[in-house]
Amino acid sequence: MKSTLLTALSVLIVLVQVGASLTLSEGFMTAAPAWWLLLIFFVASATRLMNEMTRWLDAQPNANRLFKLVVPGLFAVVLLTIWQTLTRGYSVPSVLLPAPSDIVLALFNNGPVLWADFKQTFLKAVLAGYVIGCVSGFIVAQLAVKSRFLELGLVPLGNFVSAIPIVGIAPIMVMWFGFDWPSKAAVIVVMTFFPMFINTLTGLQSVDALHKDLMHTYAAKSAQKFTTTQLPQALPYIFNALKINATLALIGAIVAEFFGTPIVGMGFRISTEVGRMNMDMVWATIVVAALAGSISYGALALLERRLLFWHASVRNAQP
């Protein structure tokens, strides 16, 4: 009974604090430092709620997977609310750090600009570079698994390349392929090639010897061997590379845009708006980039679950 009351009180405090941070006028913390008390209570109640939720979820292994998002979601709300409260409460200049609400406003007010940037950077440069880089890494790995010579020569090269900062080739690519998106795609191709190559090669080599022998006794053709044993065994590794590359590609495109773009693109937007001190716009662009990155990562993870439902790594992850 007492604990239910406490939980209800926690929910109430959380809601009040969120509401206060959104509605109170600028500088309310400076005017009345007593608001700190509420903020402290807020953090304590949110922690309590997260503890309870976690305990409840651990006790119910069959709960819907969507419920698992509640705790991290609450955590994000806590961080955003503290951010909102402090920036609004002390009227922090937006040049320094805009409040989350300002960022959301900027996001809605500049929809067309942000969409054009997204199209330029993500739909053109990132997608093209990602597809070319991953496909070529995959194909070269196929060749390397057949030829010991290629494998011995390329794997050390791949390890070496993984130690060096490849984004540095961005200025060269801009010089070769011009200011528009092909130069960014070229950077991404180079960045994504080796992770894909190394991972696919490891995957293809991880094929169980028993499976191989079995297919051999079935007199399987090499194409059949590939689709029935090699590819499925290699898929977890390939997905690993696809996920790593998804983030690398976005970083590559944005960094390459620091070196010169037409007047559109997310990297361009960030560097010019920083110069004009429009920090809310910079943050809005980052929100777009973050969403694009997380959604593509999430989509790949979901696809992996679908395709690899039989694999140990997926089966063990699902309770």
Partner: peptide, 20 residues
Amino acid sequence: TLESSFMPWVIASQTIPILA
């Protein structure tokens, strides 16, 4: 609790092109 609330964000933090 830290694991269930924080770990997803640790992973998400890397999908954000932080260099931006």
